[in-house]
Amino acid sequence: MADLHNHDIEPTRPDLGLEAVSSAPVVNDGPAPMGKQLLGFWVTFRAMFKKPNTVQYPEVKEPTAERFHGRHQLNRHPDGLEKCIGCELCAWACPADAIYVEGAANTPENTMSPGERYGKVYQINYLRCVFCGLCIEACPTRALTMTNEYELADNSRESLIFEKQDLLAPLRAGMLMPPHPMYPEMNDTNYYKGDVPHAHPSQEVKND
């Protein structure tokens, strides 16, 4: 116990020259003059007249940095087909084991993405996700990207496991809700090259 103050175990502090100050005799000169006291409060007074820095969240929301890592999104091709091919490379890359994917085969009746394969089950567990973005780097089709959305709080564990429908990007103008056939005369390579501008009328599936 005697060695508690041993210098071997105590981290060495930088020499700030305090030793000399503290070793000087303390002299009490009585209260400082008024002017000097007001000078001491200068910072306080100045702050009282400044515009407050507080953001009234959630009433007011500030935009994040452009490349902020927020909630994921599963993107679509311009005709609405899903870009995800269910390859599981995101799940493989994930250091937190937050992603679960099951692939399945596209069939002529049920084409969800260009090519042979689509992601049938896609889950991201936001209780585990560390928003590192390695999944985005792993994605070979740019299906998975991150949005700037950061409001990911909820009151149950289940609701924080996002399913495919929670992650899919909304349909934009010119898109059709899959399943529907691929763009006529185009193959999956054309899709990746960006040759598909928007949905073709023949892709519309008639439900009758």
Binding site: G86, E88, A91, W92, E102, G103, A104, A105
Partner: peptide, 9 residues
């Protein structure tokens, strides 16, 4: 087994 899993699963 087609498209059902990856070896690491």
């Amino acid at each position: 087994y087609r498209f059902r899993a990856r070896p690491f699963d």
